[in-house]
């Protein structure tokens, strides 16, 4: 099988498994390239429609281009869009370094939404190659009733037989893009013609490789202004995708702490 076809088939299998086994279910739509690919794969899996709500956990700190994108494609793609807000920074654990503390607002916003909607499954577009603790994730990853990730005792997972049984009050994170790399994502966007926020394309020698909050994400030096150029750039580089994310560089254990607490 060709590589993109294989990646796609596996993701579709995961999404269908989640939809069949877990209810109620939602998909996180952060408006970034990965979650657009994920929505696209859901439309493939379910023949054009996304049969569960799509959730944007909004920090209020996104780029204007992202909000415009959200309004437009929620309609074009026929999504059942839910937007939830995040609590102000003052309510977040102040022992976290500043950028991580800002990022943790998202966890808090998500937790409130989970309590309200009682979702048993949250589909999130993380990938193993983004970050070393994400590299250790499962495709179906349980969170305890407090929303915590017990990463020291993860369930066995093999042969596409996923963990679909869990205690009441707990929920599952489902990661249909775990096995994709950044390059795979861009190659697939190119193959399928999937729309993305224009901030990914270089303007005046800068572009975003990863889109987070305005105040804690910075662009990289790049002249890649088209999909072909982005793919060529990534084929030649080995700089980390999240180099522009401040929270990743504040302290050795910070990502682990965030994720153990329920960050994506």
């Amino acid at each position: 099988m060709e590589r993109l076809a294989e990646l796609e088939a596996k993701s579709i299998y995961i999404l269908r498994e989640a939809y069949n086994r877990i209810e109620p279910l939602t998909m996180l739509w952060s408006l970034g390239k990965d979650s657009n690919v994920m929505v696209w794969l859901a439309r493939k899996a379910f023949f054009g429609r996304v049969p569960f709500p799509v959730l944007h956990v909004d920090t209020g700190n996104k780029f204007a281009e992202m909000y415009a994108f959200r309004e437009r494609y929620a309609k074009v793609w026929g999504l059942d869009l839910l937007v939830v807000d995040c609590p102000p920074i003052e309510e977040i654990d102040d022992s976290l370094p500043p950028a991580a503390r800002a990022a943790a607002r998202k966890t808090a916003g998500l937790k409130t939404a989970i309590e309200r909607h009682r979702w048993s499954g949250i589909i999130a577009g993380i990938r193993r190659d983004e970050q070393a603790t994400r590299a250790k994730e499962r495709v179906f990853s349980p969170r305890d009733p407090a929303g915590h990730w017990n990463f020291r005792d993860q369930p066995p997972e093999f042969w596409d037989q996923y963990k679909t049984d869990f205690q009441p009050g707990a929920h599952l994170r489902i990661h249909p893009l775990l096995h994709w790399s950044e390059l795979d994502i861009w190659r697939y966007i190119e193959r399928e013609g999937i729309p993305v926020v224009p901030l990914y394309f270089a303007r005046d020698g800068k572009r975003y490789r990863s889109l987070g909050d305005r105040d804690i994400t910075s662009p990289i030096d790049s002249n890649a202004a088209s999909l072909e150029e982005i793919i060529a750039e990534l084929e030649a580089t080995n700089t980390s995708e999240r180099a522009g994310r401040a929270m990743d560089h504040e302290r050795e254990d910070v990502f682990e702490r965030l994720r153990a607490d329920g960050y994506m």
Partner: peptide
């Protein structure tokens, strides 16, 4: 077919 802004290369 998709309704993407970007056409595939």
């Amino acid at each position: 077919s998709g309704s993407g802004e970007i056409s595939g290369g």
